[in-house]
Simulated scan of single mutants.
Amino acid sequence: MTAKPFKVAIVGTGVIGAGWATHFLAKGFEVTATDPGAGAEARLREWVDNNWPTVEALGLADGASREKLTFTTDLTAAVRHAGFIQESGPERLDVKRSLIADIEAAAEADAIIASSSSGLSVSEIQAGAKRPERIVLGHPFNPSHIIPLVEVGGGRLTSPENVTRAIAFYASTGKKAIRISKEVKGHIANRLQVALWQEAICLVQRGIASVEDVDAAISHGPGLRWALFGPFLNLHASGGPGGITHLLQHLGPAQRDWARDLGTYPETDDYIELIAKGVDAELQAHDFPEMLRQRDQLLVELLAAKRDLSQIP
């Protein structure tokens, strides 16, 4: 599957769907989007307009234009003749299955249907589908028009060939597509995030550190390295000449001891007020919308820097 000669359809135009629409428009595609919500078209076009300076900074493909965006409330018209369909509806199994049924009724026979689901499995989503072999996971990360990662996988009834096709398509649009070889709740990156959030919440609950200091511990510490290397390469780099083998042998006993002391995710919502108050305190001296703008600017600069360094994965 190659980029350009066909149309991309976006089903669901919330924050994630709008990010996908921006991404595909920036790569030169004709994009037809659909959403039944009141005011959906106006919100989508405003989001795309707001996102456009960022994708311009990242680099537009030949022919990229916001004028290639079409909106319709008619799902059938939106997906007809589309070569790739990105479903980004609400994270509810009944809604996903209903959307898939409507998409299949109108889609081309060889069109890939990719779900942006952040936690539901493809096997659950594709149950009852007429052609489940072409339904895949295509889970992005917000902001999806900037962050390259997309997690791709199939369900029990998805053909491996269609997973490979989806990966190739995403890669052709500049995404860093990774394959999920076995379905698991939350996929890959969200599970890694939850592991960190679990301990972050525990440290605040135990009075070990404030919300602000936990945030600083990551953003001014290992988070800087994680933007360049993943966890295993960082361990390898910390191991000196002996690499990851030496590091794990050396720190293994201590890490096992630390792991036994890690917190568990709270079983009730009592923690939410504590964390929310901590975030409010952290943001008191800041303009959060401006922080987000600066975040996006720095992400663009970081991605450009990584692109220029051939040995950074």
Rank of each mutant, 00 (worst) to 15 (best):
2 T>Q: 14
7 K>P: 05
8 V>H: 00
18 A>V: 02
18 A>R: 07
22 T>W: 00
28 G>F: 08
28 G>W: 09
31 V>T: 08
37 G>P: 04
41 E>D: 14
44 L>D: 03
45 R>C: 02
48 V>Y: 02
51 N>P: 06
59 G>W: 10
63 G>C: 07
66 R>Q: 15
84 F>L: 13
86 Q>M: 11
90 P>C: 11
90 P>R: 10
97 R>V: 08
104 E>G: 04
104 E>M: 09
109 A>L: 06
121 S>R: 11
124 E>P: 00
125 I>H: 00
139 H>T: 05
142 N>D: 10
144 S>D: 08
146 I>M: 04
156 R>A: 15
158 T>L: 05
159 S>V: 12
161 E>M: 09
169 F>K: 10
170 Y>T: 00
174 G>S: 10
178 I>E: 07
184 V>Q: 13
189 A>Q: 11
191 R>E: 13
204 V>E: 06
207 G>D: 13
209 A>W: 04
212 E>N: 06
212 E>K: 12
221 G>M: 03
230 G>E: 06
232 F>A: 13
239 G>P: 01
240 G>A: 11
242 G>D: 06
243 G>V: 08
244 I>T: 09
247 L>I: 12
252 G>C: 04
254 A>W: 05
259 A>G: 07
259 A>L: 14
264 T>M: 13
265 Y>V: 14
267 E>M: 13
277 K>E: 15
279 V>D: 06
286 H>A: 14
289 P>K: 10
298 L>V: 11
300 V>A: 10
303 L>T: 03
303 L>K: 00
312 I>N: 01
